[in-house]
């Protein structure tokens, strides 16, 4: 069987500049949790939304194992794209992953199945990128480091279990997982230190 050469699609149009910009924006999002930032859009992205891919292009390389959920695991286009632009190894075990992408809430593994890091090396935890439906809908209040009094943000498409699981990890600090919520080309970061409560559910 002769394998024809595969086709690849474009990543960032100005890799160096775009990655620096996206890195700065993610840093901003992480240092002020609950704030929505807009990232640069990479070219034709297979399967994932633009913000998830922008984050992966910027943050991952051959030394950061990536875990993909059931929906994205077997997609050749996505694998080719990631291999070509990031050279990132895709792993099957959540615990070994430094980055993870969740696209569907129904088949999501529990947050504590990812690497939480250790007390000595909490930085070895998994950073979980979660794609959500929209940054509107349910309203949440965020408090903790990086938030002066409180900051409100809106998200829809996350179930109650997600917030429960996240809350359950909080006492384990400094261990835990950092979450990047993405929708379209926008991103909201929820580091492990942020305390999130639901305020209201929109009708």
């Amino acid at each position: 069987m002769s394998q024809e050469s595969r086709t690849f699609t474009q990543g960032f149009s100005l890799p160096a500049m775009d990655m620096q910009y996206v890195f700065r924006e993610i840093l901003k999002a992480l240092s002020s949790p609950g704030t929505e930032v807009a990232l640069r859009k990479p070219g034709d992205v297979p399967l994932l939304n633009a913000a998830s891919m922008a984050a992966l292009l910027t943050l991952t390389d051959s030394t950061t194992p990536l875990w993909l959920d059931e929906l994205t695991q077997n997609n050749d286009d996505l694998h080719n794209y990631l291999a070509f632009h990031c050279g990132v190894p895709v792993v099957n075990e959540q615990r070994r992953a430094e980055f993870a992408v969740i696209t569907a809430q129904e088949k999501r593994p529990a947050l504590d199945t990812f690497s939480l890091g250790t007390d000595e090396y909490p930085d070895q935890s998994t950073t979980v990128i979660v794609q959500v439906d929209a940054f509107t809908g349910e309203r949440f209040r965020c408090t903790g480091p990086g938030v002066k009094t409180e900051r409100n943000f809106m998200v829809s498409g996350l179930d109650a279990d997600f917030w429960e699981e996240r809350k359950a990890l909080m006492p384990l600090f400094p261990r835990g997982v950092d979450i990047l919520l993405t929708c379209g080309h926008c991103l909201i970061a929820l580091p492990r230190t942020s305390c999130v409560e639901e305020i209201s559910r929109c009708m």
Partner: peptide
């Protein structure tokens, strides 16, 4: 043509 990786 489309450059998917500009010369680097």
């Amino acid at each position: 043509y489309e450059l998917i990786r500009p010369p680097e």
